[in-house]
């Protein structure tokens, strides 16, 4: 399992959020999550321009084993989606914290970031989940 990048914030439900310049938050699922799901075969992306709310389902990923809703860690407007996943969902398996990002949101309330887990807290969460 790859290292958890220290600049990421997490939901307990295994989505990560990377805060970029100018208030854009990029979202994906953790390496732990892709490992648990197994080979991904389909990603249902949101529409660019859609309004999203923190903690609500925005995208769906399907592996050979299961379908899972992806929740947005923050509220705002979807400004970009990772079109490459339409043909190659396995990018998430290969690089969950990088090229396997799913969508990006222009955040409307930066305060929501404080609600998220930091990398250490998330590492502890998945450590406990394994037992």
């Amino acid at each position: 399992m790859s290292e958890i990048p220290g600049d990421l914030k997490f939901l307990k439900s295994h989505e990560w959020a990377r805060v970029e310049d100018d208030g854009i938050v990029r979202v994906g699922i953790s390496d732990h999550a892709q490992g648990q799901l197994g080979d991904l075969v389909y990603v249902e992306l949101p529409e660019v321009g859609a309004a999203v709310q923190a903690g609500h389902g925005v995208a769906v990923v399907e592996s050979v084993k299961a379908a899972s809703d992806i929740y947005s860690p923050v509220s705002g407007e979807v400004v970009e989606v990772n079109e490459a996943l339409a043909d190659k969902p396995e990018i998430i398996n290969e690089d969950a914290f990088g090229e396997g990002w799913i969508f990006a949101v222009r955040i409307s309330d930066r305060g929501e970031l404080d609600e998220l887990l930091d990398a250490d807290a998330y590492a502890e969460l998945i450590e406990n989940e394994d037992h």
Partner: peptide
């Protein structure tokens, strides 16, 4: 990340 809540879908089909 959660199993989809819309509609009725069965998720955890195992081996």
């Amino acid at each position: 990340m959660r199993p989809p809540s819309r509609g009725k879908v069965t998720i955890a089909r195992g081996p």
